[in-house]
Design a protein around this nucleic acid. Structure first.
Lengths: 120, 120
DNA sequence: ATAACATATGAACAATAGCTCATATGTTAT
DNA sequence: ATAACATATGAGCTATTGTTCATATGTTAT
């Protein structure tokens, strides 16, 4: 068992052609799986998770989020940028202030399912 | 607006005490939010996503997964370790071979919700 | 015991990501 | 136009992470 070129490896493994066919039939495109991973990376940071939880309660401006989380405006703004790019939050401008809110019902479902998982 | 010590920042922000109370009442413990982020980090890599998708179809040994994904045994084994530690996969030994399978229904829900999100 | 095989793991390296700092952009009031 | 404020952003630094390589562990057959 040496490399990934599949010539002389693992001759005794239990894989069958039917399973290979099944897997290759149902597996989404590589690019989609890559995008999916990119999305979950966004959830993979506790600062961003906290921002999302805060926004469950109310739309809020950058400065307020920073105060609530005890972090700098810059750090929060950078993270909101990621969340915005992933379409997890949306925003509206009101004068100098920008209000952020959740963009999507999936956010709650995903976080809830994650919570259920770690609660076990 | 300078630091995170909240003395002379953003006096004109629209935050209200009622919202602060509401947020602080519903926000889970820091440690839980940290664990939640750790869980989503696991989903935040396309190799691990692929492994999970492969396991939707059938339990499978390390070598077979490596072959299906065109990657080395070592790389897959390292990633299975992460998935195991997060209790996303389980395994059973059968002689020399170790078969991995999904541990949990949440995995499917989380991936499906993520898919729905990026499909929009 | 020895060889062959399947899997696991530690070290090292390259790539990625989050925070800070300084500064830019955009808005409002004077 | 200028000042004050809220937010955005680029560069730099440090920490983290995925893969490779070499090797260790565990199982089976001889």
């Amino acid at each position: 068992m040496t490399d990934a070129n599949g010539v002389e490896r693992c001759e005794y493994c239990h894989i069958h052609q039917e399973i290979v066919n099944k897997v290759e039939g149902t597996m989404p495109e590589d690019e989609i799986l890559y995008d999916l991973a990119e999305l979950f990376k966004i959830f993979g940071d506790s600062t961003r998770i906290k921002i999302l939880y805060v926004l469950f309660e109310s739309e809020m401006c950058v400065c307020d989020i920073a105060k609530l989380l005890g972090m700098t405006q810059s750090a929060i703004s950078h993270q909101l940028r990621s969340l915005k790019q992933s379409k997890l939050v949306k925003y509206r401008r009101e004068g100098k202030t920008v209000f952020y809110s959740l963009a999507d019902g999936h956010v709650r479902t995903i976080l809830d399912q994650g919570m259920e998982h770690i609660a076990e």
